[in-house]
């Protein structure tokens, strides 16, 4: 069997492939409950990470000709990203399990030799209580690093901490 090609950092100049329309997953005309996802990325010293590529992927609603279900956004000079997408519903899990609405996130940046993978969940979703992935995390504070909260403007916000206190739960798949 072959082994997969080694990952290397995306580096600081990946913006050469950036298309800022990709942050809006509704740009091809998809309709539904639109949500705005925001967040700020911090390093282990609490400094802003201003050169990251944040990617999102969701299986609900399913991808279609008018809904890519995938987006990419840079973090700006404030370390912030912002996506517009459709609110996911519950997603089938393994066996008979049902997963809470969630969005998969990949983080690429200078200093990251591999993509960091995590998930975004939505606060106050009843299925969060029984979600198979959230249930793997015993510590309540750790679990909260995956749960976006509603801001005054109506956006869903989830900050990402690469290292240190309140480090985001990252995943291996």
């Amino acid at each position: 069997m072959l082994a997969a090609t080694a990952s290397q950092t995306i580096g600081p100049y990946w913006h050469l492939i950036e298309d800022d329309t990709w942050a809006d997953l509704t740009r091809f005309g998809a309709e539904g409950e639109t949500v705005v996802l925001t967040g700020t990325v911090y390093d282990g010293a609490g400094s802003l990470v201003t050169d990251a590529a944040i990617e999102i992927w969701q299986t609900s609603p399913a991808a279609s000709d008018i809904f890519p279900a995938f987006g990419r956004c840079r973090t700006d000079s404030n370390g912030a990203f912002r996506f517009t997408t459709l609110k996911p519903g519950p997603v089938a899990g393994l066996g008979n399990a049902q997963q809470a609405p969630h969005i998969a996130i990949s983080i690429f940046a200078r200093g990251l030799l591999n993509a960091l993978i995590t998930r975004l969940y939505f606060q106050d979703e009843p299925l969060n209580e029984t979600d198979p992935v959230l249930s793997m995390i015993e510590d309540e504070a750790r679990r909260r690093t995956l749960i976006a909260t509603r801001t005054a403007s109506g956006a869903w916000n989830l900050d990402i901490r690469l290292q240190g206190d309140n480090e985001t739960v990252f995943m291996e798949i």
Partner: peptide, 30 residues
């Protein structure tokens, strides 16, 4: 086959690599 996120010789990894072991999750449709 893959690099370690914590690679001290590459300075930018110092404050950016997660310190905790990643959570291995089952692969779902996501």
């Amino acid at each position: 086959s893959q690099p370690a996120n914590d690679t001290p010789s590459y300075g930018s990894t110092h404050l950016r690599h997660p310190a905790r072991v990643p959570l291995r999750i089952p692969q779902t449709i996501t």
